[in-house]
Nucleic acid binder design. Structure first.
Lengths: 128, 128
DNA sequence: ATTAATTTACGAAGTTCTTCGTATTCATAA
DNA sequence: TTATGAATACGAAGAACTTCGTAAATTAAT
């Protein structure tokens, strides 16, 4: 087990998404990115990022006059944790229910079907 | 669109799960079920269920001296909404990413693989 | 060096959620 | 009818999160 205490809030997660996309960024840059979707005060973003630094969700480095923030965890890692929590809390551990549920809601495109079949074929090779 | 404002909190969702399992129940019964996993004060459970009634997450009917609570929405409906929100907020709409992510975390059993293949086969019949 | 502009730090207020203690209500039994 | 026990109603406190205003610090330009 690595660092299993990755529990960003909604706002924190949105900031992480920006950092994953843009790479290490200043508060200003992150705030601008956030504002493309929804107006956020600059100091609001700042505050949350400061809290994220306390929680070690991000690291920051002083570069001249401003800080440069970097996500502490990889996107895949965080999403994996989130999905794992959903599986446990919503589906009581039954991951396949989540898969079926999702496939039921969103009909995969022909291309995605191919993708899926390949993924499944790989599982079949790996004998259980 | 039906009732798309189904946003139970963690605690509320746990109560819904009990109601789905046991069917219409009293606060006492729900509280006992919850306590099997984690101690919860009776009035705590009561309060949350009252709030859920205000939010229309449950309906309640007076039966003599106590109320009988019933989940307002079907389990599938609520879970569908939850999954939909995850897809939007975490995977930016890319449902397949959630599917692949989940399949990556939990290797499906041979039986589940068969199940999956059947599901996919059905999608293939439905031409897009 | 003083000013202006930018960034950070800090504190406080407003929400929502959870938890619990206490008061109230009400059916039932004595 | 009164007392008892069980259930509900209510209020308040505490925690976590979000938001923002203002002060302080710092850099750069005048």
């Amino acid at each position: 087990m690595t660092d299993q205490n990755i529990k960003p809030t909604q706002s924190e997660f949105e900031i992480l998404q920006v950092l994953w996309k843009l790479g290490p960024s200043t508060v200003k840059r992150v705030n601008e990115a956030l504002n493309e979707k929804k107006p956020k005060g600059y100091t609001t973003t700042l505050k949350i990022m400061q809290i994220m630094a306390e929680k070690a969700l991000v690291t920051r480095v002083l570069d001249g006059k401003f800080h440069i923030y970097t996500a502490s965890h990889k996107e895949l890692q965080v999403k994996k944790t989130l999905v794992s929590n959903i599986v446990d809390q919503v589906f009581e551990g039954a991951a396949m229910e989540l898969v079926i549920q999702t496939l039921g809601n969103y009909k995969p495109s022909p291309l995605e079907i191919i993708e899926l079949k390949e993924l499944i074929a790989q599982y079949e090779k790996t004998k259980n």
